[in-house]
Nucleic acid binder design. Structure first.
Lengths: 177, 177
DNA sequence: GTCTATTGTTGCAATAAGCAACAGGAGGCG
DNA sequence: CGCCTCCTGTTGCTTATTGCAACAATAGAC
């Protein structure tokens, strides 16, 4: 059940054996698993008072200001109750607050100043890890890597699956950045 | 506190403004966070009876046959008690077993046949997700992406931090030293 | 103005994870 | 050879995370 998924568009022209692509895709998966697993571990040291889920919620609010609790739950495939509880904790902690101008259905969320501080702190630590791993990369290589990663993340996902964590705008409207 | 970390080695030559690299690195981090967060969500559907930690443990044993409980704990920054309990569950489940020839300090671990089956099943599901996102990539692009990811993962990590999750062989590999 | 669907919250249960204390054995040293 | 120390794994207790189900409150539809 692995993947004859090159049904899509192109499949290159240079060296592309099917087996080659197969192997490369498997390598991509393995690398992504490492990244994911390492992210969980790194999140533990990034901010001692904020769990990984907390940090993810903060990140989601940063990327989607005014989002509601349900949006977060859908994005991370979490139960609404889980998000509700975590949000309650975060609001009590003073890092998240509800926007005053609540017009639509739910309660729009936003980060407080200390929320931004906590977010920046966590990001800073993770930045250190990333910087370390990109140490001997050229600027062009880093740029290309960033481009590939973004392309991968915005790829086909969001169709089959409910929605991504961060980065995908809630409303498909205007014009993707 | 973000990062003037191009202290390292090279910094390319073509277009490399410091700000450019700064932005690209930030993009890399954002993308990696998305991947990590999405990995947690995907792990929930990859194998219903195995938690993300369980799957990680299986993956680690796959990559490090004969590893011991402590190795896993260090790799994932988990408490030994956590790993011990999870391993007990996995052994009772019949997916992990202890190798008979225990010579050294701890008890070497290995996967059983059903352990491999469970691992393959989880990998297969994740493969589907990856395939979907790589759908419109050329073979060459996939290969390049895989290469970059592996380079990133094997980068500088493993020096500052205790050890990685998967992929890093316990003995420092071939060429490096 | 009522009715339905969405949104958020709480009770209960299961799992995951950490800390501390402890048992058992490997290796080192006299 | 015998003792001592450190490593490895396990268990008791506690806390945190997550899900399911039931419930309250409200926005939007009719």
């Amino acid at each position: 059940m692995v993947g004859e998924s090159n049904n899509g568009s192109n499949s290159g022209s240079n060296n592309g054996t099917a087996a080659e692509r197969e192997r490369a895709t498997a390598d991509v998966l393995r690398a992504l698993i490492v990244i994911s697993r390492r992210g969980v571990a790194d999140a533990r040291i990034a901010n001692l008072s904020l769990s990984m889920t907390d940090q993810s919620i903060l990140g989601y609010i940063v990327d989607h200001p005014g989002c509601r609790s349900t949006d977060i739950a859908q994005a991370f495939r979490l139960n609404r109750s889980t998000v509700s509880r975590q949000l309650a904790g975060l609001m009590q902690l003073g890092v998240v607050s509800e926007q005053a101008d609540a017009s639509g259905r739910g309660r729009p969320l936003e980060l407080t100043d200390s929320g931004w501080a906590a977010y920046d702190e966590a990001i800073g630590i993770l930045r250190g890890v990333v910087d370390e791993n990109l140490d001997d990369w050229t600027d062009a290589e880093v740029a290309r890597f960033a481009h590939d990663l973004q392309r991968f993340n915005t790829g086909a996902a969001g169709e089959t699956r409910p929605r991504h964590p961060l980065e995908a705008p809630p409303a498909p409207l205007d014009s993707a950045p």
